[in-house]
């Protein structure tokens, strides 16, 4: 396990460096002047010159990159936004919990829906439920996330008035008047975004789980369990589920990056100022420190999540755990 972790760690550092260099290169290749952007509305050449110096834009590319790494490692600083001067760490600190809540809660929801539906369709192939599940899968796969989100917001938020239409509430209660917060409000406001994620991903996962469960059901060890006299429930829960969840865990690890991408659209529909929105704004304003900050954060988050998935996989599958 030790060697496994060390190998993972090196891979993570490598990924991190590659991701940040690519982001840097993109910004140096596109024809724009960060100093002009940072300068703001009305600007004169002396002000631009001053900003260029203070942002170290006069230095060559590799030195700027080195400064960025140094500031991050030495001071834990990701720099300051060109546009409003706020610290990138603060900006990410504001946005990350929103995207985190969205993706994590969304993942819980889509698994909570797709596991039972997938299992039931596997147990009763060609039943009404299986076919209904398949229709649902097709809708989920074909419909764009923005469309799903808008429809949900319109029907459940607006027409029926069951849920908020948009915006985010902080999980931790704050005493700010007029700004909603607290766990209940947090969950209530995220119901629709989660549902959007659920529809989007549950579709794929129902297919995946159905196929895995059906495959596992035909495994020899399941026949062994039956021959032992195990009840259907025991066969399902003790023998089929854990084995059929193994590929799901792997796919989940791969999908987390995809989910961050999906978050961009979901955040747009539901007015959530998460990382996706931050990234879009920053990219359109050519606000390099914020873009790099979000990329760094997302890379680290994906790397950590994948590491956790590997650990979970090893925990689920002793063949991996005991052979490494």
């Amino acid at each position: 396990m030790g060697a496994f972790i060390i190998r993972r760690l090196f891979w993570a550092i490598f990924l991190f460096i590659v991701a940040t260099i690519i982001t840097y290169v993109i910004f140096f290749v596109i024809p724009s002047d960060p100093a002009t952007i940072a300068c703001g509305t009305h600007c004169t050449p002396p002000i631009i010159a001053h900003i260029r110096l203070s942002l170290h834009l006069n230095l060559p590319f590799y030195q700027q990159y080195w400064l960025f790494l140094w500031n991050m490692l030495r001071h834990g600083s990701l720099g300051y936004s060109f546009v409003n001067g706020a610290s990138v760490r603060w900006i990410i600190g504001q946005a990350a919990p929103i995207t985190g809540s969205l993706v994590a809660g969304g993942a819980v929801c889509w698994l909570a829906l797709s596991i039972p539906v997938g299992v039931i369709s596997a147990l009763r192939p060609r039943s009404i439920l299986d076919r209904a599940g398949m229709v649902f899968v097709l809708i989920g796969i074909s419909a764009p996330v923005v469309w799903i989100g808008l429809i949900l917001a319109y029907i459940f938020g607006f027409k029926l008035g069951w849920t908020p239409i948009a915006t985010y509430c902080n999980f931790f209660p704050s005493h700010q008047i007029g700004v909603c917060s607290g766990p209940a409000n947090w969950a209530y406001h995220l119901v629709l975004p989660w549902a959007t994620f659920m529809l989007l991903f549950a579709a794929l996962y129902v297919r995946l789980i159905r196929a895995n469960v059906m495959e596992t059901m035909s495994e020899d060890f399941v026949r062994t369990a039956r021959a032992k006299g195990a009840s259907s429930a025991r066969v399902l829960f003790q023998h089929v589920l854990r084995n059929s969840m193994l590929p799901v865990v792997t796919i989940l690890g791969m999908d987390i990056g995809l989910a961050l991408g999906g978050a961009v659209f979901t955040e747009t529909v539901f007015n959530l100022n998460g990382l996706g929105q931050t990234l879009i704004s920053a990219a359109s304003q050519e606000n390099l420190p914020v873009v790099v900050g979000v990329v760094v954060f997302a890379t680290v988050a994906v790397i950590i999540f994948n590491f956790l998935v590997d650990v979970a996989y090893a925990w689920l599958d002793p063949r991996i755990r005991l052979s490494t």
């Binding site: 495994e219 020899d220 060890f221 026949r223 062994t224 369990a225 039956r226 021959a227 032992k228 006299g229 195990a230 009840s231 003790q238 023998h239 854990r242 084995n243 193994l246 689920l316 599958d317 002793p318 063949r319």
Partner: peptide, 24 residues
């Protein structure tokens, strides 16, 4: 049937590599 299986009739299968649950 369940009471008979495993209790009064035992069964062994061809492939011992796949007939045991790998995660238990």
């Amino acid at each position: 049937l369940r009471k008979i299986r495993g209790q009064r009739i035992g069964m062994i299968f061809q492939d011992p590599m796949t007939s045991l649950n790998p995660v238990k």
